[in-house]
Amino acid sequence: MKLLLSDLRAKQVLYGEGGPPVSLLKVVLADGTLANALYRLQAWLARIGLAPLALIPHILNKWLNGCVIGVKAQFGPGFVLIHPVGVVINSSVRGGRNVWLESSVVIGENRGGFPRLGDDIFVGSGAKIIGAVAVGDRARVGANAVVLHDVPAGHTALGIPARMRPPRAN
């Protein structure tokens, strides 16, 4: 329950960026919240050794939200599915705190290697992160980018295949 609450708080921060604060009720009723809740339920069931039962919320997420997240995929607090439709995440994927995903994002394994995402990550609509790549803290992956190599901390990955853009100097 703590993880789900942290996810909702992170979504509240996202929705309040650049404007007035957003109520928790609005966040609960927003697109993606049910997908987040079902993911957290399946992850909890798998963590306590009830992996077969975890398939129930997994299948519900697929049917109701068009979102497939592997039963053993792990994300830290602040995980946000902004728009869950088309999101596909392999069971081996590991993500840190405050990972925010738009629609149609694919994070998948390739030849036994799987992505690892750091903290404070944003992944735009339609992006693909494939194979044994690391996405560093505070990195961004642009819409429709195809990431096949590591993304350094603070960089933005853009294009097909993705090229790295360094952070802006202040």
Rank of each mutant, 00 (worst) to 15 (best):
G96E: 05
L8H: 05
G76K: 07
S104P: 00
R116I: 11
G70W: 02
A169V: 14
L158Y: 09
H58W: 15
K72H: 15
R140G: 13
T33K: 02
F75K: 02
L81C: 04
G32H: 05
S6W: 05
D137A: 09
V87A: 06
V146W: 06
P115N: 09
R116M: 08
D150S: 05
N61F: 00
R9K: 14
A54Q: 08
G18Y: 10
R97V: 10
W44D: 03
I129C: 03
A139N: 05
G70F: 01
L34A: 11
I69N: 04
A43Q: 12
G112F: 12
V146T: 13
L25F: 12
V28G: 00
R111G: 10
Q74K: 13
D119W: 10
H58I: 03
L8A: 12
W100H: 13
G159H: 07
M164Y: 01
L101I: 07
V135G: 08
P152D: 09
Y15N: 06
G32D: 01
L41K: 09
L148V: 15
G70K: 01
I82P: 00
I56P: 08
L148W: 08
G32K: 05
I121K: 06
K72N: 14
D119Y: 05
R168A: 15
K128D: 06
G131F: 11
L8T: 00
V135T: 04
K62G: 15
K11C: 03
W100V: 14
V106M: 12
R116T: 15
V99H: 00
Y39A: 04
L38C: 04
G49C: 06
A169D: 13
V68R: 09
A46W: 07
A145W: 03
N170F: 11
S103P: 06
V141T: 03
I82W: 09
A132G: 15
I82Y: 11
A127F: 05
K128V: 13
Y15W: 12
N36H: 00
S104Y: 10
L158I: 15
A51L: 15
V105E: 03
G136Y: 10
L38F: 07
V105W: 02
A143Q: 10
L50Y: 11
V135S: 06
A54V: 11
L24I: 15
Q74R: 15
R9G: 00
A54I: 11
L29F: 12
R94W: 02
H155L: 03
G19V: 07
D120N: 15
E17M: 12
F122I: 04
G159C: 07
R94I: 13
A30M: 07
L117C: 02
A37R: 04
V71E: 09
P57A: 09
W100P: 01
V88R: 03
R40H: 01
L8S: 01
L50C: 13
D150V: 01
I82M: 04
L117T: 05
L41S: 13
D150F: 02
I82R: 06
R47D: 14
R138G: 04
K26L: 10
L8Y: 02
